[in-house]
Design a protein around this nucleic acid. Structure first.
Length: 157
DNA sequence: GCCAACGTTGGC
DNA sequence: GCCAACGTTGGC
């Protein structure tokens, strides 16, 4: 087990859940993720106090729009059990949950969006998953170096 | 709205 | 266990 704080990037489509939504509710469960790799991160790796970039995808403006922290560690995503839910999955049940989520709380929003193009233009961030072509993972690891680099950008102030 | 890249499913 | 077909993601 690592005591060191870890860093993440979490994608959301603003039409579904935006940074403003997070701002107004302050914290939320990150439900609806139906990808095994992303699930594994949330179930096994994400710890209370870990930090995450809030990234908006499939939007007019694409990129990082804020930061959040993990306030509750992996637990069963109960939205998978509701047949009426958009993310219903009959494979999952309360007895044998398949999908997991964490809770996050807003830390801050960018004054100005840090666009994907902007991230791509920064050489030190070339290794980031989100700038790689075809990367679809909705919960990604971020290196401490990338975290620092991005936090130093003027868009935050 | 298009479509390339990706993850998942299911037949064999 | 392979891999083609399919559905989804997400940038453009």
């Amino acid at each position: 087990m690592s005591l060191r704080k870890q860093y993440w990037l979490m994608k959301s489509e603003p039409s579904d859940f935006s940074i403003d939504d997070l701002k107004s509710c302050k914290s939320t469960c990150w439900s609806g993720v139906r990808n095994y790799q992303a699930r594994n991160y949330m179930r096994d790796e994400m710890k209370i106090g870990d930090r995450a970039f809030f990234y908006q995808s499939n939007a007019k403006q694409i990129g990082i729009v804020g930061t959040a922290k993990v306030i509750k560690e992996g637990y069963a995503d109960y939205t998978a059990w509701d047949p009426k839910d958009k993310h219903y999955d009959p494979k999952s049940s309360p007895e044998k949950p398949v999908w997991f989520m964490v809770d996050i709380e807003i830390i801050k929003t960018c004054r100005k969006i840090i666009t994907l193009n902007r991230l791509k233009s920064i050489t030190e961030l070339n290794h980031m998953g989100v700038v790689q072509r075809g990367n679809r993972l909705s919960v990604q690891q971020v290196s401490p170096e990338a975290w620092e680099t991005i936090l130093k950008l003027p868009e935050w102030n």
